[in-house]
Design a protein around this nucleic acid. Structure first.
Lengths: 358, 358
DNA sequence: CACAGCAGTGAAACCGGTTTCAATTAATTA
DNA sequence: TAATTAATTGAAACCGGTTTCACTGCTGTG
């Protein structure tokens, strides 16, 4: 016994819609499916979300109808009713920086084939912009947040923690152990410096990143620790405060040279800085690696093609992004999980070699 | 005469909500504002959207109430009712490529301070992925689309054209003149090659990008035109098919050298390729620019710090992104506008110089 | 002075889903 | 075989806005 369950007003509204705009492909709604499959809206919704058991026959009928009519649930209706948006907000420290872009790309990969989509926002290196941007994302009802780089102040973080599931990538924050992905910058920097020491260098310069930036501080710290551990006295004049960009590399080297500081090796806080440093040396006719060895950090794609190819620390950026997506997904589904340990790797290329005669 | 307009069920539901979850900051809705300002929901909505004139007194009352209660309209409810999402979908050719990232960044900038937010998706260089990704975005009810790079097939484009306001950036498509932003790749390539010719070079090699890619074809074409115009015969053996990456640069140069082809200058289809080429020359002990001059394309940030700094064609990537956002906004608001003309610029640095003795 | 026209407004329908609640039916237990 | 329990299911409320429609005063016109 078939029944045609059509509410008077629903039929009317659909009719009117079609009359007014006959060219528009009418949107298939859950009600259409219900009619087609001869069940109620409720049942269709149940099949859709798998919340309550539905008799196999009906389930099949519903699925068939959905397929046949090419049904796609309306995200707004769904969001309004359920409160979920299936959207993840991603705040990046800076759009266009190789390392943050790579992490972002990882997030995209990690979210592919899930029901969630990322929506990106750029913190532009400024915590207050970051805060505003988070606000916008929350206004857009994102289900979760991934914050790349130390783009927020701790007060904002505290608030976030009780507001919305959040994962931090690329920086370590106390109290966030379960939802925080980062590499051991200090150890990595130590390894990098150690590599130079093992090659016989003792006069090793360092150009830092943005001084207040966590990565920068830890890399500087690792550099110091390596030197100290090797019994090499730290010369503060061989440390230059940079800003993570090519220009800092140029300025740093210029500064050392103008002050007559001697050094046979240089550890740069990131690859961009290393590129700049390499250029400054080139300008002075100082050879790499014959006269000065250089180590960078990040292993951005260009590092393999500089002259000479740059020895650098590889960050598993892509993997971090993927892992961040996974952790957040687990958080959202309240599943148990452990935060993966992320390892860096020193990629030895041709910008470093045994120290020659001083 | 004040009236307390509170629907029984609304009051009840709010009460229950608060009882159940007293810690949760209850969401302020349009009804709350209506009650507070002593008007109807309709009026609040009118103030919110400025659709129908509202008496000044009431408007003020409503605005005051909204401010006082810190009201933010629910995007889902709004989207469901109005059909607008205030979201722009951005499909990029490839996440992580400097040039596309820069355009994306421009879009972000262009959309800042508007009511629209971008939501990004990565086409991963593959048209079919691009298509899927567009589908997802449409499923998310984006109000408009920005497609960066030639990431879609023309059949898909045709469909898009009648479905949703779309702007194309970084590629030219017939029939899309009013909503298409691109640079004159051919002219730019011609200028770049011309620059080499003016420096006295006649044996000028070229490494292309992905052969089927529009940018690549046009740059190749510009290269040919410049040579022909200068009366230089084109040597097909001096053209190598690359893939827009560093490795292509290495392979290209290796290929020329192994076949004993002589050249004193090289035009690379992009900077990444130029970097690779420069490395290959370095490996062979061939100097730049003394023995070989190199010109790249894109002016990505690293180009200024290579040894020597790379002469290259600057693309106004950021500006293109900004312009794309503007054009789309105008499209959405059905405003008149003209598509801005975007100019490239040859940035002459130190990788090119007068040809020495052959 | 009667009537058309317009600014302003509230009630209620509507957008398209989810979820609660009660009812129906089938299966299980005593 | 009667009573109880579990599995399914539909009706209706609800999410929070927008928009249509009808109605109230006022103003302008003849």
């Amino acid at each position: 016994m078939l029944r045609a369950i059509v509410k008077p007003h629903e039929a009317l509204s659909r009719l009117r819609q079609n009359l007014l705009d006959p060219l528009v492909k009418k949107n298939v709604t859950i009600s259409d499916i219900a009619t087609q499959a001869n069940v109620s809206k409720s049942t269709v919704s149940r099949v859709l979300n798998d919340t309550t058991p539905v008799h196999e026959d009906k389930r099949k009928a519903v699925l068939a109808a959905m397929k046949k009519m090419n049904f796609e649930p309306n995200v707004f209706a769904r969001g309004l009713a359920s409160g979920q948006s299936y959207t993840i907000g991603v705040v990046t420290q800076n759009f266009g920086s190789p390392i943050y872009d790579a992490i972002s790309q990882g997030v995209v990969t990690g979210l592919a084939d899930t029901t969630y989509s990322p929506i990106f926002a750029d913190g532009q290196w400024q915590p207050d912009i970051g805060e505003a941007v988070v606000q916008t994302l929350i206004g857009r009802k994102v289900d979760g947040l991934i914050v790349i780089g130390s783009s927020l102040e701790s007060s904002v973080l505290d608030r976030l923690k009780k507001t919305i599931p959040t994962v931090l990538v690329g920086w370590e924050v106390e109290g966030w152990e379960k939802q925080c992905l980062f590499i051991d910058n200090e150890q990595a920097a130590r390894n990098a410096t150690q590599h130079l020491i093992e090659l016989g260098h003792t006069q090793i310069a360092h150009i830092t990143g943005i001084a207040t930036h966590q990565d920068s501080m830890r890399r500087l710290w690792g550099y110091r620790r390596a030197l100290t551990a090797a019994g090499i006295e730290i010369d503060e004049d061989l440390i230059f405060e940079g800003r993570f960009d090519g220009n800092s590399g140029v300025l740093g080297v210029e500064s050392f040279l103008m002050r007559g500081k001697r050094f046979t090796a240089l550890f740069a806080s990131n690859d961009a800085t290393a590129f700049g440093a390499r250029l400054a040396l080139y300008r002075r006719g100082i050879r790499v690696p014959e006269d000065v060895s250089i180590v960078g950090f990040d292993n951005q794609s260009e590092a393999a093609f500089t002259t000479p190819p740059l020895t650098t620390v590889r960050q598993p950026a892509q993997e971090m992004g993927i892992a961040a997506a996974e952790v957040l997904l687990n958080l959202l589904h309240k599943k148990e999980f452990t935060v993966p340990k992320l390892e860096t790797e020193l990629v030895i290329r041709e910008s470093t070699r045994l120290r020659g005669n001083p």
